[in-house]
C-alpha cells in the first residue's frame, strides 16, 4: 500500500481566517449569487445573523502537511469529496485546520492496480470546537504509482 507508514499521521494545526474578500471572490468564481455570502444587511437579517461562506469554501484553507508525506506533483485524480458541518461557517472567524492520511488501500481495476488515499481534514474554532470535517478520495493510477515507487 502506498504511504502506509503515514496512515494515521496528521499535520500540525494551521490557523486560517474566513476573509470577506476571499469569500466574495470564491462565490463569484462558482457563480453563486446568494446574498448570504456578500450582502451584510441581508445576512444580518437572516437566520444566520451574519455573512456565511459557501459550502465548499473550506477547500481554500491551508491545512498544513503530514510531516514527510510528499505526493507527486502531477497525475493524481480527485475521486470524491464530502464535507459535514456542525454549523455554518461564518465570515470573519478564525479556523484551526488539520489534515490526516486516514487510510490507504489498493484495488485491481480495469486499467490496472489503483491506489486509493483517504484524507480527512478538519476545521475547529480556536477553542477547539469542531466546525466541519471533510473526506477526500485521491486515486493513484498505475503510471503514477511507478513514479512514487521510483
Amino acid at each position: 500500500m502506498l504511504y502506509e507508514e503515514f496512515v494515521g499521521c496528521r499535520s500540525e494545526g494551521v490557523g486560517n481566517l474566513v476573509e470577506k474578500g476571499a469569500v466574495r471572490k470564491f462565490a463569484e468564481a462558482i457563480g453563486d449569487p446568494s446574498p448570504l455570502y456578500t450582502d451584510e444587511r441581508a445576512a444580518r437579517e437572516s437566520r444566520h445573523g451574519g455573512l456565511i461562506a459557501p459550502p465548499t469554501f473550506p477547500r481554500t484553507f491551508d491545512y498544513g502537511a503530514v510531516p514527510g508525506l510528499e505526493l507527486p506533483p502531477a497525475g493524481l485524480i480527485h475521486g470524491s469529496h464530502r464535507i459535514d458541518y456542525e454549523r455554518p461557517l461564518f465570515v470573519g472567524e478564525g479556523v484551526l485546520c488539520r489534515v490526516e492520511l486516514e487510510k490507504s488501500y489498493d484495488k485491481e481495476g480495469r486499467r490496472g492496480l489503483l491506489g486509493f488515499l483517504l484524507f480527512e481534514r478538519t476545521g475547529e474554532t480556536l477553542s477547539g470546537e469542531r466546525i466541519f470535517t471533510t473526506k477526500d478520495t485521491v486515486v493513484v493510477t498505475e503510471a503514477v504509482r511507478k513514479v512514487i515507487e521510483g
Binding site: 446574498p35 448570504l36 441581508a42 437572516s46 437566520r47 459535514d84
Partner: peptide
C-alpha cells in the same frame, strides 16, 4: 440559504 444551511455535501 436565508432559511437554512448545507449541513453535508458529497
Amino acid at each position: 440559504l436565508a432559511h437554512g444551511y448545507v449541513k453535508g455535501f458529497e
